[in-house]
Write a protein that binds this DNA or RNA. Structure first.
Lengths: 220, 220
DNA sequence: GTCTATAGAATGATAGAC
DNA sequence: GTCTATCATTCTATAGAC
């Protein structure tokens, strides 16, 4: 009952590597193989032999480059979250709050489209991490979330957005943007940048037209 | 390295059972225990003993009620998807396309909030299913998706919505609504119905104000 | 239907040669 | 650094008593 009987479709992944310069060639091949395996079948369903054979190595070779299977997962998840944080931390081209938010969302979404395979692992395989590694990832994720909070707060402060609920809107935008790793395909009709622009407009709509609903209450 | 060392936080789940009337008391306890285990640690990380001990039974008792661990997963996922389909299939109270869509989204979101634990399993553990069972679930999911497509198409047909891209908007709305199972807590500030109403407004904003972006193009 | 005991298979990680 | 061989463990599922 291994990966060979998997019901989930194969993934197309032509995205560039995310790995640190410090990794050698064999280690990078193991990480690349690990992403594919973990994204398709999950961390616990992936056998160390699945990773090593996909990387063209024997089963023992993994332990020359990584302390354990969990360390392979950790390096993948950390690289993904560091890459996302770097992308959202780029200064936007303009000072307008609406354009600022749109630029932020477009970059965030384009990343998740291009790296949708690594994005799945980074979002859905966190339960395979040790508590220490899990805490490290959550800290990185909070830095990314903080960038969105600041963009929203700035828009409301400068009266560019409606009186939206900060936390609810940020959660909604992040949900919208992250979930596309579940369905996006690089061989589909839309490029990562096209999806990014489309979702940027949707996000702006959340903080202007429909986002101006009164916080709490019974929703009437 | 079992569930006892898990890094992920405990889940609060006070939602009613989803199980068919055909299941006896022990089988229902096993399904309820299975949902918690699968949602917290994933299908493959969950051992049959985790489920049976949480249900107050010996490890062999599982096989009296289910053919395998995978069958427990399948019954859980099927029950969740059937319940969702029933909820979105309820006829809305009004004939207005905007109110129709809002009612649909509100019900869909309230379900995912109330059953967020089962919702996680239904969305993120599908790779644990056999190909046959996977196909059964995908068929159920497509019926639910079709309800959203029809609601959007009706709004554009009757000029109540902007000229939105059908598939892109449906995917965006479903992403927004489904992803909340990753973060929603029943002991948080918002009730399932409150989140449902809030997200209904966001979804309406997607098909009116910001949704009227030109399909495809370079996004300018 | 539930239990104890265990068969049988698979897996993460290691030993040691080259 | 890579390999072959294997250990020690863990886990699903079954056998058979009550």
């Amino acid at each position: 009952m291994g990966a060979q009987h998997s019901a989930v479709p194969e993934l197309v992944d032509e995205s560039p590597d995310l790995w640190d310069e410090g990794f050698g060639d064999a280690a990078r091949r193991l990480l690349t193989a690990g992403v594919r395996c973990f994204a398709t079948n999950g961390f616990h369903a992936t056998k160390t032999r699945d990773i090593t054979s996909a990387a063209g190595l024997s089963s023992a070779a993994l332990y020359v480059h990584f302390a354990s299977k969990e360390h392979v997962l950790f390096e993948i998840v950390r690289a993904a979250h560091k890459s996302v944080l770097a992308v959202v931390s780029e200064p936007p081209a303009t000072g307008d709050p609406a354009a600022h938010l749109k630029s932020l969302v477009a970059r965030f979404v384009a990343w998740h489209a291009r790296y949708h395979v690594a994005g799945r692992v980074g979002q859905y395989e966190l339960s395979g991490l040790t508590p220490d590694h899990y805490a490290t990832i959550i800290a990185l994720r909070q830095q990314t979330t903080a960038v969105f909070h600041e963009a929203i707060r700035r828009g409301t402060r400068e009266r560019a957005f409606g009186p939206v609920d900060d936390h609810r809107v940020v959660r909604a935008i992040l949900s919208l943007c992250v979930d596309l790793v579940r369905w996006y395909r690089l061989d589909g009709p839309d490029s990562p940048e096209e999806v990014g622009h489309f979702y940027a407009e949707l996000a702006l709509g959340m903080v202007t037209a429909a986002g101006t609903v009164t916080p709490s209450g019974d929703g009437v």
